[in-house]
């Protein structure tokens, strides 16, 4: 594992993403949801909405770094709002 140059921060990041994927998986088995059309006029499942949230969050954080620099706490808040909006309306 040494060659992978792990840090606890990146490990935490991946554990969180993994846990999100697992809980989304469990959620979709317990309460299956049909795909729906939202404001983007595309059909999305909860998995699609998670993907859009994660990809969008990555870009929000990168743009924040480009414009204001670190730390990213406020950017993370924007990401949470963005993800909530995606799950509600997309």
């Amino acid at each position: 594992m040494a060659w992978m140059a792990w840090t606890w921060q990146t490990a935490l990041f991946f554990v969180l993403i993994f846990l999100t994927l697992v809980s989304m998986g469990v959620w979709s088995v317990k309460a299956p949801q049909a795909p729906r059309k939202g404001i983007l006029m595309i059909e999305t499942t909860p998995g699609d909405r998670l993907f859009i949230s994660l990809l969008g969050s990555a870009w929000i954080c990168l743009s924040w770094l480009a414009m204001f620099g670190s730390p990213l706490w406020w950017a993370l808040l924007v990401c949470v709002v963005f993800a909530a909006a995606v799950f509600r309306w997309v």
Partner: peptide
Amino acid sequence: MTVVNYAVQDTFGNNQFFWAGLS
């Protein structure tokens, strides 16, 4: 994942890494 790990650190070889955050 390894690339992500590299992206937050600095190295001068020898498999020694130093935390660099998001810089």
